[in-house]
């Protein structure tokens, strides 16, 4: 499909619905049933909203994590999610309960920062990984450790292939590994090293997000091209690979070299990638790009500082999570109070 046709059919448009949250958030995802929107935060919580009506309704959060909750994932066929925090805890929750409590949790699932969790397509297994360079596989039902094996680098991202046959990891150095789950061995590596750079003395970048399209023929990985240290400047970038032959199909580089990280990239069922990036306040894009075409068919900076995108099961609504936290040196007080950051979730529609 050419870009003009795509744009006429799939142009994300803002609605009046904007959900405000007083702290910063990492990810906001619609539940598979479409009734809930869940978001994991810097404040050790998972926030919930009922989005079934014309206006969102804030629900009781999931409480019990110790620190940042950078990742969450829904467990198919159940009303459960798995989440992980930066102190090594993994927890599974019944997210539809009035006051969710953990079905199970493991405070020492990892040593330190868990950066990614993924759920197998059949909902039976949960994979996790992070700073301790261990890949671990858990029973989704009861949290039993099924398998573990070392990973050569810090794990930044994980996803299962839709067939369930592969677990895919992305690391700090821009290496994507296709793991045979049964043997815990690497079948092959895909090269996303443009998303990493040793800039002077600082290791920068990494594969920040991985996702397959619905039939598993395409893999998108998000990050920053030629990432730099200090101000952490670079081009938001999504690489799309052909999963069968491992070839890079499209390097989706956006904006300028100070537009920050592409933190999220997901496939729309129609085959295009939706992605968002975040950098200093006012920076960053939302864009839609089909790998077959050289240019994106949609790009916008009107809602900058995007951290995640989620497509509602109705195929029409999109939840765009953005960060609202000014940068600046020195003391900034409002009525005598030191100010932190906050978040907004914009509901867009095709």
């Amino acid at each position: 499909m050419d870009n003009t046709t795509l744009l006429s059919e799939f142009q994300p448009k803002p609605t009046k619905q904007v959900i405000e949250y007083e702290r910063q958030l990492f990810q906001a995802r619609f539940s598979p049933c479409g009734k809930f929107l869940l978001a994991s935060g810097y404040d050790a919580t998972i926030q919930r909203w009922d989005v079934s009506g014309s206006e969102s309704k804030r629900l009781n959060p999931c409480l019990g994590h110790h620190a940042w909750v950078p990742c969450l994932a829904f467990i198919p066929t159940t009303e459960r999610i798995v989440s992980a925090d930066s102190w090594g805890q993994i927890a599974v929750w019944r997210y539809a309960d009035e006051t969710p409590s953990p079905v199970w949790k493991n405070d020492t699932a990892h040593d330190g920062w868990v950066r990614a969790v993924a759920v197998s397509p059949d909902g039976q297994r949960i994979a996790s990984g992070g700073n301790d360079r261990m890949l671990r596989m858990w029973s989704a039902a009861d949290g039993k450790l099924l398998k573990e094996w070392p990973h050569p680098e810090k794990i930044f991202s994980l996803c299962f292939h839709p067939s369930g046959s592969s677990l895919v990891s992305g690391d700090l150095k821009g290496v994507i590994r296709d793991w045979d789950i049964d043997t815990a061995t690497v079948r092959r590596e895909l090269d996303a090293r443009v998303l990493y750079q040793l800039d002077k003395i600082q290791e920068c970048g990494g594969v920040r997000h991985l996702s397959f399209n619905h039939d598993g023929k395409r893999l998108a990985c998000a990050g920053q091209k030629t990432p730099g240290g200090g101000f952490s400047t670079g081009f938001p970038c999504v690489l799309v690979f052909d999963w069968d032959d491992g070839q890079l199909l499209r390097e989706m580089q956006m904006g300028k070299n100070d537009d920050g990280f592409a933190y999220d990239a997901i496939f729309h069922p129609a085959g295009f990638v939706m992605a968002t990036s975040c950098a200093f306040p006012g920076k960053g894009f939302v864009w839609c790009w089909t790998p077959q075409n050289e240019k994106p068919f949609f790009e916008s900076t009107s809602i900058p500082n995007g951290r995640s995108l989620s497509l509602h099961p109705d195929g029409r609504r999109i939840a765009l999570l953005v960060s609202k936290s000014a940068n600046g040196n020195g003391r900034v007080l409002v009525q005598g109070v030191y100010q932190g950051g906050s978040a907004q979730i914009h509901i867009l529609e095709f």
């Binding site: 910063q24 810097y42 101000f231 952490s232 920050g260 975040c278 950098a279 200093f280 306040p281 920076k283 500082n305 960060s323 609202k324 936290s325 000014a326 940068n327 600046g328 040196n329 020195g330 900034v332 030191y338 100010q339 932190g340 950051g341």
Partner: peptide
């Protein structure tokens, strides 16, 4: 800075 900016950074804080 204690505050974490939108770029997940910290600025100057004397």
């Amino acid at each position: 800075t204690p505050k974490i900016n939108s770029h997940v950074g910290r600025d100057h804080w004397p």
